[in-house]
Design a protein around this nucleic acid. Sequence first.
RNA 1: GGCCGGAUGGCAGAGUGGCUAUGCAGAGGACUGCAAAUCCUCGUACCCGAGUUCGAUUCUCGGUUCGGCCUCCA
Length: 468
Amino acid sequence: MPLSLHNTLTRKKEVFAPIDAKKVRMYVCGPTVYDFAHIGNARPVIVFDVLYRLLRHVYGEAHVRYVRNITDVDDKINAAAKANGENIRDLTERTAKEFHADTKALLCLEPDVEPRATEHIAEMIAMIERLIASGHAYEAEKHVLFSVQADKDYGKLSHRNRDEMIAGARVEVAPYKRDAADFVLWKPSPDDLPGWDSPWGRGRPGWHIECSAMSEKHLGPSFDIHGGGLDLIFPHHENEIAQSECAHGGAPFARYWLHNGFLMVEGAKMSKSEGNFRTIRDVLGEAPGEAARFAMLMGHYRDPLDWTSERLMQAIYGLDRFYMALRGIDAAPAAIPVRVLEALDDDLNTPLAIARLYELLGELNTANTTADKARWAGELRAGGLLLGLLQQDSEAWLQGETIDPNEISDAVVKRLEERDWIDEQIRLRLAARQTKNFAEADRIRTDLALKGIILEDGPKGTTWRRAG
RNA sequence: GGCCGGAUGGCAGAGUGGCUAUGCAGAGGACUGCAAAUCCUCGUACCCGAGUUCGAUUCUCGGUUCGGCCUCCA
C-alpha cells in the first residue's frame, strides 16, 4: 500500500509521489525562540518526526532532506528580551538550546538542516528585490509590502478570497498599504531593535519571508512536503506560497501541505490566564519523554487532542506493559511489521499503529516457545521503530532512567546504592521464602512497595520495577 | 458575518454501507504461599432529524454542539 497523505491544498487524501524519489524534501515551521516551548509546540515536532522516519524508511535515509527552521528574529523575541533585561542574542541562543533538549527528550531525530532566520537575511532581501522587480511588491514609507492583488492565486491554500478577508472585522488598514490585505515583507527598525541594512534602509524582515527564503535555499523553489500547525494555514502559509511562487515565476511551491490539529489541556484551550499553560519541560517533569511522545501519538495528528493527566497515565501504563513483555527476551531482528506500516501509510494513522502494537503484544504474551517469543519481541521492537517508541532497554524503562557511570555525581552514587540495597532486600526475601517464613517475605515486599518498588517473582528469579 | 475541521460504548480511540477494532476502567474465571505479570470469558456505541438504499454509525441534506482561523499572532 502506497503512502497517502491528507493535503490541505486539496482537502483530500492523496497518494504521495515525490518530485524526485532520490531526494524527498520536507520543510516544517519550527519554533520562535523566545521562551520554553509548550506542549502544543511539541505536537508538530513529534508528528513530523514520525513522517520523517517513515519517509526515510520508504525512500532510504540518504534520500530524505528534512528542514526545520528556527525563527530568531521576531517582535515577541524583542519584547521578551526587554522584559527580562536580557541580550536578544543570549535569549535566542539559550532558548534554542532548551528547545533542542526538549526534542531530544521526546526522542525526535534531528532535522537535516536547521536554518536560522538571522543567517538568511541576504537571501530574504534578494527575494524581496525580485518580488519588487516583478511587480508583486512595493515600497512604502520604508516598508516593503506584498501586493495581494498582483497574485491571482492568492488564497488557494486557505480557500478564501480577498473580499472574504476584508470582510473580517479585525482588519486594520495601515495608511501606507495599497490594499488592506497586503502584508509586510520588510519593515524599518529603530536603533534599539535588531536591524540590517537594506535597499530600503535599516530594517528587519516580516514574519513570512524567512520561510520562503530558507526553503528556497535548502530545498529549492519546488519541494514535496510543507508542514506545520493548523493555525499557520492562514496567513503564514498562504503568504509563503504567494511570496515563493511569485518570486519563482509561478513555479509551484510545496506540493503537499500537512497541518496538525490543535491541542487543548484538560479540556480547555491552553492559555496563561487559564492557568493550564504547560511547557514541554513541565511535562518532562511528570513523565519520561517516551511517555509524552506515546501520549501524543495516541491521537491522530489532524484531530484535536486533549492533553490530560489521564492520557499521560495511560501512556505510561501502556509502555509498562510493552517493556514488561519485552523484558529478558532476546528479540530477533525483524522488518517493520506490515500491519504497522499499513497504518502509518494511511495518512500517519498513529492511533491505529499503536493498536497494532497491542496486537503484537498479545502475540508475544501468548507465545509458548522461546523462538516464538524472540520473533514477536522482534516484531514489536521493529513496529515501534517508526513511531520512535520501544527502542530502549526494558530495565531502563522499568527501573527509571539509565545511569551513566561516567557521570559521577551524588545523585548517581545514591541511585547505585539504592540499587544495591534493593538487590540485598531481594536476597533476604528469597532466604525467608526458602524457609517458608512468608511473614518476613511479605514484610519485605510491603516495605519495598511503600518505596514504589514492585517485586515480581518469575521463573528466572525475582525482578523489580518502579511503580508507574 | 466568512472559511474550515470534529462529534463513536464509563474514558481514550480506529474503522466500515450489512460481519471482532484496540487500550484503560468494570464483572467473572485460570494461574499464584502472597503479590505482580499473563491468559480466558462478558456488558455498554456510533449527536439529532430527514433523505438515498433491501439495509446507514458509515453516503446526501438540514440542525445541534465543540474547536480552529479570518494579517504581523504557534
